[in-house]
């Protein structure tokens, strides 16, 4: 009886484990099939046509996503590395632990709430939607990711390197800035890539900030489109043609996100070995 229970238990563990990846495999198969047929040169290089018409593309989304990611990086990367240094220095003090928890809280805020915040901070003041408000919303999501990966990368540097630098007569700040930080750079870049993968796929914070734009726009004070936003709008529309575009867009976005995540992981592993 005991052995029977055990066998059933093992069976269920294996069964549920495999069952859990069935939707995922199905999902991948679908997205590849439906997305692949939607992608062609026109798709990647032209702007959307009016609803209902065949053809057109997602260029506005591609360019918009680039602009948003570039701006968000500009805001978050320097600040994130700085705050990562801060958390690293104070990690053994109560004050540092408290701030660390605050960053965890920031990371846990639902992205729709972040969108509301950016709306209230910027869109409401400017009285119109803009790329810059979308970028700020994305920065609030990007920031904790960079902060944590900076802090963790710094913590992986062995104390002996700090000692060697100090024993050469270097001051502590110089040691951090010229030895520890450069050695952690690969780990930090890993975090940045993961973060970009994350914000590239965020939609909710852009709904009330960047807002979307069927045209190409390089003015950061005006609304801008983005890949995830296009997916959302096209999916919820009644047009067959736009549904097709949604799948194509989704496939591209998935490929970008998976690509960024894998080079981030591989880069991190290689760097960790070197230490």
């Amino acid at each position: 009886m005991k052995i029977f229970k055990d066998k059933i238990f093992r069976f269920f563990v294996i069964f549920f484990s495999f069952l859990s990846i069935v939707p995922l495999l199905f999902f991948f198969f679908t997205i590849l099939k439906k997305g692949f047929t939607a992608i062609n040169w026109e798709f990647l290089t032209s702007l959307p046509k009016p609803p209902g018409e065949i053809g057109g593309g997602i260029l506005n989304g591609i360019v918009g996503s680039f602009i948003l990611i570039f701006l968000a990086s500009f805001f978050s990367i320097p600040t994130g590395i700085f705050l990562g240094l801060f958390l690293y220095e104070f990690s053994d003090k109560k004050f540092g632990e408290f701030c660390n928890t605050l960053i965890d809280v920031l990371q846990g805020i639902p992205s729709i709430v972040i969108g509301i915040i950016a709306y209230l901070w910027i869109v409401k003041q400017m009285d119109h939607f803009s790329a810059i408000s979308g970028a700020i919303a994305l920065s609030l999501i990007f920031l904790p990711i960079i902060i944590k990966s900076t802090k963790e990368s710094l913590q992986m540097i062995p104390f002996s390197l700090i000692e060697s630098s100090l024993s050469l007569g270097a001051t502590y700040p110089r040691t951090i800035l010229k030895v520890i930080l450069p050695c952690s750079l690969n780990g930090i870049i890993s975090g940045i890539l993961t973060g970009i993968g994350r914000i590239a796929g965020e939609t909710a914070p852009l709904l009330f900030t960047a807002f979307g734009n069927p045209f190409l726009n390089f003015n950061i004070l005006k609304p801008v489109s983005s890949l995830p936003h296009l997916i959302f709008v096209y999916t919820m529309s009644p047009y067959e043609n736009w549904h097709k575009h949604a799948w194509g867009c989704a496939l591209i976005l998935v490929i970008i996100v998976l690509f960024l995540n894998s080079i981030s992981k591989i880069g991190f592993r290689r760097w960790k070995v070197k230490l």
Binding site: F27, T30, I31, G197, R198, A200, G201, E202, T203, A204, P228, I231, F232, T235, A246, W247, A250, L253, V254, V257, L258, N261
Partner: peptide, 11 residues
Amino acid sequence: AVIPSVIIGLW
């Protein structure tokens, strides 16, 4: 874990 939510919604 890294697939964007909007894409899962689409599917």
